[in-house]
Write a protein that binds this DNA or RNA. Structure first.
Lengths: 172, 172
DNA sequence: CTTGGAAAGTCAACAAGGCTGACATAAACT
DNA sequence: AGTTTATGTCAGCCTTGTTGACTTTCCAAG
């Protein structure tokens, strides 16, 4: 973990090359293109089911933490309950998600993927993992470590912590 | 450059740790959160002008290559001309973008930022660069190199080349 | 010089997925 | 008993994407 490259004795210009406006701008653009490209394949699959990216996100996080409460999911996704409810209702009606009344708090609904929900999740995550794995193995372990380090630094620490605690452990 | 660690004779789990499903999944999620977090600040600024992310993208790429033709912009953004035309018309009407008839081919429109367009571009890119620079300098040069390597590997080579040639040189 | 087709603009209609506001219900908490 | 919380739902709005159809402009080939 780099603490302060600015204090090193190496020539200033060389050391800060990665922080020039041009380098930064390239990073921003690459992030834009990579993100768009990365989501395009799942988007195409979802069309066959008449679903969109919003459904994908719900399916992903319900699979990620089975038994997730609606409130937690709202917090993770950062959308309104009305917006979430629309896609969630479809997924429940279509039998991809099972919404069970909470055992301890009966106001809550705990969300689980059904068998067909799990199947779609697998179909979607397979293509994304395949693609990410291809990029990872082309780039190599050190690059992947750097990739993760920069992404981590890009996320607001407060947000990152909240997400971590929401997605941590205790399934069911 | 890693070629194919899967074909190596070392079934060493350590070597492939960065390619486990769990590692991949973490990368996917971090990309999601980082991208969303990264775009949230410009989005808030744009609200003050009653613009959205679509306007931001247009402003960005017109600034990136002044004199860009509408067709080129369509190719970069990957949306329909009707969709682009809506936001483009607003920006032209509001005097942020100057649409000049092409000198060599008078069917084409070459797009330029006006003074106020440049001002908004600066306002938007300042916050993004600031944020990206913060992440970059916290992560360090090696991490940044890795970040860029992975992103590069994530983008379809064909797409990457097309974008490169569209955005290259010859301004005006 | 005419005509085919490319580039651009526009109108209409629609869909996904955001948003707000208002309201209902059940359960938990105090 | 009364308040708060978790969830669901209805209605309506906005942005930004889509398709289809049509026009105008204008380059370039026959």
């Amino acid at each position: 973990m780099h603490t302060s490259p600015l204090t090193r004795s190496t020539p200033r210009s060389e050391q800060l090359l990665f922080l020039t406006d041009d380098q930064i701008r390239q990073g921003i653009e690459m992030l834009f293109f990579a993100y768009r490209d990365f989501t395009s394949h799942p988007d195409k699959i979802l069309e066959n089911y008449d679903y969109g990216r919003a459904h994908h996100r719900v399916i992903h996080f319900v699979n990620r933490k089975p038994g997730l409460a609606v409130n937690e999911l709202l917090d993770i996704l950062g959308v309104t309950k009305q917006s979430l409810n629309r896609v969630l209702r479809q997924l429940v009606n279509d039998g991809l998600i099972d919404s069970r009344i909470g055992k301890t708090d009966r106001r809550q609904r705990n969300l689980f993927l059904t068998e067909s929900g799990t199947a779609l999740e697998k179909e979607l995550s397979d293509v994304q993992r395949k693609r990410m794995r291809r990029a990872y193995s082309a780039a190599g372990p050190e690059a992947v470590q750097g990739f993760r380090t920069v992404l981590e630094a890009m996320i607001e620490p407060e947000l990152a912590n909240r997400m971590r605690s929401l997605l941590r452990g205790e399934p069911e």
